[in-house]
Design a protein around this nucleic acid. Structure first.
Lengths: 193, 193
DNA sequence: GATTAAACGGAACAATCGTTCCTGAATTAG
DNA sequence: CTAATTCAGGAACGATTGTTCCGTTTAATC
């Protein structure tokens, strides 16, 4: 029989996420991938097909990870407003800590590829819809428990929250390092809830 | 003496803005530029130096145009809140009309290049600062005239407005075509003012 | 009409791109 | 052992990249 796989496919994907996230699709060369994933050209192409497929898989994996984190936090939360605040605070911390200012992989990919690559566009669209649902359910829960104002519709607030989340990630990508800027935005956002 | 320039440098730059805006820096080839600007390889390089310089000039020109539009509208406005609403409505209209979903050239460039190209990073940073000032002054004016709530600091609101403006442009870039999504966001944003 | 410089088309550059293929070593199961 | 399969490494592919250079044409000034 045959030799077993030596490298962990999932771990290789995580590596791919990192470098695509940092350098973008067009900015990452095949050589970059070989070097950074630490496996040979042949293994890379045998395992993942081509660059586009690898990117697509990476983005999908990232989406799952990111979504699950937020989803779980909100679903088991007893005070949704506070949990949402925690999520934003975490995004701010990551934006400031991040010494290589990666922003958000999904936002970056949207901007770079969504209009030129149908498959990526589909992932992005799917992500938006799912996040909208997650936030909508969370807001509804918060409104029922009295933690969030009922002045605006849950879906309206969900889209609003998601929009500001995107905005903050763009801000991070520009390299903004002034915490006050992020805090001000979060403050204004939560004055609505 | 010498022959006079046949092509209009400013018009060529506007063409460059269009294609860079649409395809991004890495996605636009030298051949794309030759074809789209309608001038020869030699003229292009003689006039603008190289691709990076052309991109930089294009982005600066775009910045000036975009800034002046918003600046003038807000400075001569008598009801700043309404003018801000007009600006957002205009962004929404452009996002929906735009058959090739360009988003915002500045946002796109931030995400694609700001962290890899110092010159671009400088332009982006300068743009953020200027826009923050413009919005801050506008909000102050609105607060003094009673059109905008004084509950939050002018600078806080300015940053908040700018963040949502970025977010909307990202949304446009993803190809979102549902007007309701944009309208919901705008509604929530203006509930703060 | 001579001079000067700009614009042009296109050839050509080296470099890099993503991808394929080959070789030989390594490792597993029967 | 043998057979099967994966590994690493690198050579090589054609295509495309950004850029330079050259010869010719065009036009404006003197």
């Amino acid at each position: 029989m045959a030799r077993t796989k030596e490298f962990n496919e999932a771990k290789a994907l995580d590596k791919a996420i990192e470098i695509f996230w940092h350098k973008g699709y067009n900015g990452t060369s095949a050589q970059d991938l070989v070097t950074y994933l630490g496996l040979s050209r042949s293994s890379l192409y045998d395992t993942f097909g081509d660059k586009q497929k690898l990117f697509s898989k990476s983005l999908q994996r990232y989406q799952l990870q990111a979504q699950n984190t937020v989803k779980e936090l909100l679903e088991k939360s007893e005070n949704v407003k506070e949990t949402l605040l925690d999520i934003f605070k975490q995004a701010v911390i990551e934006s400031l800590e991040d010494r290589i200012t990666k922003g958000c992989f999904m936002v970056n990919s949207s901007v770079e590829l969504a209009m030129h690559d149908e498959e990526i566009a589909k992932i992005v669209k799917d992500n938006s819809q799912t996040m909208e649902e997650v936030f909508t359910n969370a807001v509804k829960k918060g409104q029922e428990s009295g933690h969030i104002s009922k002045q605006l519709d849950a879906k309206v607030l969900a889209r609003f929250i998601f929009n500001n989340y995107s905005g903050i990630r763009v801000l991070a990508r520009t390299g903004e390092r002034d915490k006050q800027v992020y805090d001000d935005i979060v403050k204004a956002v939560f004055s609505v809830l």
